[in-house]
């Protein structure tokens, strides 16, 4: 499991509001059939897990066939959160 999954989970566990925004090839493990249970586990741990709509479309991944706890969202969400002052880390 990638180290930033742990970071996101720990931050959420410490009471922080955490969003993991998947973009580019990062959306591939968001597919319902992907063997990547870590993302759904993050969602269950309270992390908001979003997948970029454009990146999904580029890869012919249907937004209504994502793994449990993951939902499609526009990239605007990132700009919204930056404008709101949320700390942002690119991984």
């Amino acid at each position: 499991m990638p180290s930033y999954y742990d970071l996101a989970k720990d931050l959420a566990g410490a009471g922080n509001e955490v969003t993991l925004f998947l973009v580019q090839n990062g959306v591939i493990p968001a597919r319902a059939g992907a063997k990547a249970p870590g993302l759904s586990a993050l969602a269950e741990a309270g992390v908001e897990v979003l997948a970029d709509e454009f990146s999904l479309r580029e890869r012919a991944i249907s937004a209504n066939r994502l793994a449990s706890g993951i939902r499609a969202a526009p990239l605007d969400v990132v700009v919204d959160q930056l404008a709101d002052g949320r700390k942002a880390m690119w991984h």
Binding site: V78, L82, A83, G85, R86, A88, W90
Partner: peptide, 8 residues
């Protein structure tokens, strides 16, 4: 700035 994103 209100915020900064570093895309490394």
């Amino acid at each position: 700035s209100d915020n900064t994103l570093v895309i490394g």
